[in-house]
């Protein structure tokens, strides 16, 4: 993997003026907010599998998935430092802001990848370790290195890496991956494009500036809004499916149907809106402070996070509390 293009000269000047790196800067390299979602979905996969693992092994397995996610995030920040420095959403990250050197981010990512995969193999099993290694390599190499800057389908491809943690948790608990584990993966995989494209509708300027071919940049806002709706229409039945495969119970069914309807309504509003048509739709660097035209996209982006969280929380609560899954097909 070759080193990305250098950070812009004006950033190099900034680097020397920055205070020395704290350990919290290294923690930021691991994208702790993304890591928390990964831990949550992996934990759900682990618990929903019904596997019986030793509690300590269970904790170590989830820790390995968290560290593996952090490692791939660190590799991503190392490689993307040049474009991160130019985008409002990412310019404060540790490498572009000069708090951490790129080489240190690379080293952290490589070392943590090795430790997390090795420990997963020793503690749980080598299927889970293999899946974890695949996820890290897929995110760092296939998505970040090869596809992110070369195709408008980058989010669809990268979404696979974000979708795999429930399957890793499932494999860590049971030593196998079943169709229900695959269903959890499919939910996150199909959820990612409408979630991220909603965000990119009002951040497209940043991506265009740095040459990342995000869907609104390449195909335009109108096409992106249509694709968001199409993905949402496919997504919602898949989200409801676990209630019919012995995985989800009554709480899950209610959450997936009601939340799904709201999701579809918001996606339809995006499709009918002018979100992404006008430049400068953000008021600040924040992800939620947008002008009127982009509010429908902002609302879908925000609700998509809530919907996925509620879906997995429902599964987690049902399986942790011993609620019987629905057996709607029998």
């Amino acid at each position: 993997m070759s080193k990305p293009a250098a950070i812009l000269p004006h950033d190099a000047a900034t680097i020397t003026a920055k205070s020395p790196a704290q350990w919290t800067d290294y923690l930021q390299l691991m994208k702790p907010r993304v890591m928390s979602l990964v831990v949550f979905t992996a934990l759900t996969g682990f618990v929903a599998s019904g596997g019986h693992q030793n509690l300590f092994i269970a904790i170590v397995s989830i820790l390995c998935i968290a560290v593996g996610a952090g490692a791939s995030a660190s590799l991503n920040m190392w490689f993307d430092a040049d474009i991160d420095a130019q985008m409002r959403r990412t310019r404060g990250r540790p490498v572009p802001s000069g708090k951490v050197q790129g080489a240190d981010a690379l080293a952290l990512g490589v070392v943590l990848s090795g430790f997390s995969v090795m420990l997963m193999g020793m503690a749980a099993n080598w299927l889970a370790a293999g899946l974890l290694a695949f996820t890290i390599l897929f995110y760092a190499i296939v998505y970040t290195r090869w596809r992110k800057r070369s195709t408008a389908q980058n989010i669809v491809i990268g979404g696979l890496a974000g979708a795999l943690p429930p399957a890793i948790g499932w494999a860590a608990a049971t030593g196998s991956v079943t169709l229900n584990a695959g269903l959890l993966v499919l939910i996150i995989f199909l959820w990612t494009p409408p979630h991220f494209w909603a965000l990119s509708l009002y951040t497209a300027e940043d991506y265009a500036k740095v040459g990342v071919p995000m869907m609104p940049v390449v195909k335009g806002a109108a096409s992106t809004r249509k694709q968001i709706l199409v993905y949402s229409i496919i997504l919602i039945p898949v989200c409801i499916a676990p209630a019919f495969t012995g995985l989800g119970g009554p709480v899950y069914l209610a959450v997936s149907v009601l939340g799904g309807l709201v999701f579809l309504l918001l996606a339809a509003r995006v499709a009918m809106s002018r979100a992404g048509d006008m430049p400068g739709e953000r008021d600040t660097d924040g992800l939620y402070d947008v002008k009127t035209a982009a509010k429908s996209a902002r609302n879908l982006f925000a609700f998509s996070i809530l919907y996925l969280t509620l879906l997995f929380a429902a599964l987690l609560v049902e399986h942790a509390s011993g609620l019987r899954p629905l057996d709607l097909l029998s």
Partner: peptide, 11 residues
């Protein structure tokens, strides 16, 4: 890390 490996081995 060392403590985790030790306990995992014990388990």
């Amino acid at each position: 890390f060392v403590v985790i490996v030790f306990v995992v081995t014990l388990v």
